[in-house]
């Protein structure tokens, strides 16, 4: 049995302006197949990736915001959002999509995936990881 590693994907870029956000999401989904202990963090402009109501019809790009709601299916259910980054940008948790996962052990009860954390809390989570991937 190979050792399970703690992997964290850190997202710090806005969606659409660059390809980082979508590339990161693809890597997270691919990586989820390896049954590691995966968590994802959104900080700085990365918090913009999770806003609800995205409609890309007018810019002719794929709207990948619905894909974040599939993360729960991939058992990626530790999603950290940096509180200070949200506040600086005039956003609150209400402006973000509601991300959930279903707990099979509790009759598929829906649980929140997003954890709103302070910089200090995020710093603790980061320190606890084996590998960090930056996007």
């Amino acid at each position: 049995m190979p050792e399970t590693k703690k992997l964290m994907y850190i997202n710090r870029k806005a969606p659409y302006g660059t390809i980082y956000a979508w590339e990161s999401l693809e890597v997270v989904l691919i990586g989820a197949a390896f049954e590691q202990d995966v968590s994802v963090a959104f900080m700085d402009d990365g918090v913009y990736q999770l806003t609800k109501g995205q409609d890309t019809t007018g810019i002719g790009m794929k709207n990948f915001s619905p894909t974040y709601t599939a993360l729960g299916d991939y058992e990626v259910n530790k999603i950290y959002v940096d509180k200070e980054s949200l506040e600086e940008r005039g956003l609150t948790l209400d402006d973000l999509q509601h991300l959930v996962w279903e707990d099979e052990d509790e009759d598929y009860a829906e649980k929140d995936s997003i954890r709103l954390v302070s910089r200090a809390e995020l710093s603790e989570v980061l320190a606890d990881q084996d590998v960090l991937f930056n996007f």
Partner: peptide, 24 residues
């Protein structure tokens, strides 16, 4: 409510609608 809003005070500012919509 963003930190940068004060930079726009007293300026004539426009934004591109399709880019707003894309970003929610």
């Amino acid at each position: 409510a963003g930190k940068a809003a004060s930079l726009l005070e007293g300026r004539s500012v426009s934004v591109l609608g399709p880019d707003l919509a894309a970003r929610g």
